[in-house]
């Protein structure tokens, strides 16, 4: 028999009040603001427009050129993958040149 999960309430929820306070402040600010009428995106598929806008292929679409950012985010993703793999690698006894990340405890796990 297992028991159903219960919502854990207690004093550890107290810091959450800071989040609630932040929400009230932001809500108070936003609800008072008045924006002009929103402009739409014109006719046609928005997705297509996004693709054209990303590489500035169609000058009539108002956007910035994100070509350089596209390339860089590619590099960032590769770096993230490599980093994640490196962090997750289990240190072996015979692995040469590996960085020991065990916080100096010195024993193998």
């Amino acid at each position: 028999m297992t028991t159903r999960p219960r919502l854990k309430l207690g004093s550890h929820l107290l810091p959450g009040l800071a989040a609630v306070a932040l929400f009230t402040v932001m809500a108070a600010v936003f609800l008072q603001g008045n924006f002009p009428a929103p402009a739409g995106f014109g006719e046609g598929s928005v997705l297509r427009s996004i693709g054209m806008a990303m590489f500035a292929l169609e000058p009539s679409i108002p956007s910035a050129n994100f070509l350089v950012a596209f390339e860089i985010i590619d590099v960032v993703l590769v770096a993230a993958l490599v980093g994640a793999v490196m962090l997750a690698r289990r240190e072996g006894n015979d692995s040469s040149g590996s960085v020991r990340t065990d916080g100096g405890r010195g024993d193998d796990r």
């Binding site: 810091p15 800071a18 306070a21 932040l22």
Partner: peptide
């Protein structure tokens, strides 16, 4: 705790 302090600080600033 640090996050809580950050949030509180942000709220106060705002």
């Amino acid at each position: 705790n640090y996050a809580a302090l950050l949030t509180v600080g942000l709220v106060v600033l705002l």
